[in-house]
């Protein structure tokens, strides 16, 4: 899978999860993906506590006005090369909150999103698939160097 990537990528892909005002539905499915049933750690994918360590940013939620600059700051703190995954319908389209006065989303207005995961919430399998797709992007970026 990790052809052309540097040595550090071959082992592991570190993910940072940022909640921009989500309902927790996607967040618990992300944690479910880390737990024994789906166990993504066997692929070397793990959640990290700070964006400075992360390769991939998982954003959930429709981005409320208060969270806009915080989400941007999290993205800026991540080292290159990086990929952004938008998890859940509300980050992609607004979903049931689409017309709300307090939203600045969808997320692709704020950050360059690489992989969109739809579903409310998406199943853990879909989230794992999205991370694998982000991996492909990072690979391509690295190959261009």
């Amino acid at each position: 899978m990790a052809k052309g990537l540097t040595k550090s990528f071959k082992r592991a892909l570190w993910v940072y999860h940022c909640n921009s005002g989500s309902c927790n539905g996607c967040d618990i499915e992300i944690i479910a993906a880390l737990c024994p049933r789906y166990d993504v750690e066997r692929f070397g994918i793990r959640l990290v506590g700070t964006p400075r360590h992360a390769d991939v940013l998982l954003v959930t939620g429709p981005v409320t006005r208060q969270m806009e600059d915080k989400v941007k700051r999290v993205y800026e703190q991540m080292p290159d090369p990086k990929a952004v995954i938008c998890v859940g319908n509300c980050g992609n389209t607004g979903d049931v909150f689409y017309e709300s006065y307090n939203l600045v989303g969808p997320i692709n207005k704020i950050l360059p999103v690489d992989v969109h995961v739809i579903g409310c919430p998406p199943r853990p399998e879909a989230i794992i698939n999205a991370v694998a797709k982000a991996w492909v992007k990072l690979e391509t970026l690295e190959a261009k160097k």
Binding site: G21, Q66, M67
Partner: peptide, 14 residues
């Protein structure tokens, strides 16, 4: 508080 305010109650009027 207030970071997750999505205007749910307001949206219900429509």
């Amino acid at each position: 508080l207030g970071h997750v305010h999505r205007g749910v109650e307001w949206a219900s009027r429509k």
